[in-house]
Amino acid sequence: MRTPGAQVRVALVLSLLVVAHFALRPRLGDPRLTPDFVLVALLFLAIRVRPAWGAVVGLLVGIVSDAVSPSAFGAAALALTIVGYSAGWLKAVVFADNLLVNAFFVFTAAWARDAIQVLVARQLRGGALAWQLLALSPLAALTTAIAAVVTLVLFRGWLRQAEA
């Protein structure tokens, strides 16, 4: 059973990730390869709640994300809905408290999010689609996984207490 203090600490970590997405990420170089801190926050939340809540939160975060790319409005909503639900569903599988496993989990989620989004948006095709899915998206997913690992290392105590 999570205590209110643990929930507050998790909420604080998630808030920090959202702030980092807008305050830190622009300083990290090429925007195509920078980590998606909001996705990390969504995954951290989704594995702590039921799959249904993961889907709902994913839908809301996705719609807000779509507001800054209205030409593909709805694509991120669908992608994050599926990713949020899957993260909540996979929490029974991804149970190991291992940094590498968690990094792989985040990497896969970020790549899947990009794949769903780019396929649903239907704005890229041919070589552009392959370039995005096989080069840019894996690199961005890698930086997102690194960001998740750094967050886990920095806030391990808070996140672990929340699991107790």
Binding site: I47, P51, A55, T81, Y85, W89, K91, A92, F95, L159
Partner: peptide
């Protein structure tokens, strides 16, 4: 990052997923 729950999705979860999709 692991959590304490190991339950898979229920029908309600699946219904909510379908609604969100």
């Amino acid at each position: 990052m692991a959590t304490g729950s190991n339950r898979y999705a229920t029908r309600a979860d699946t219904a909510v997923l379908a609604a969100c999709v």
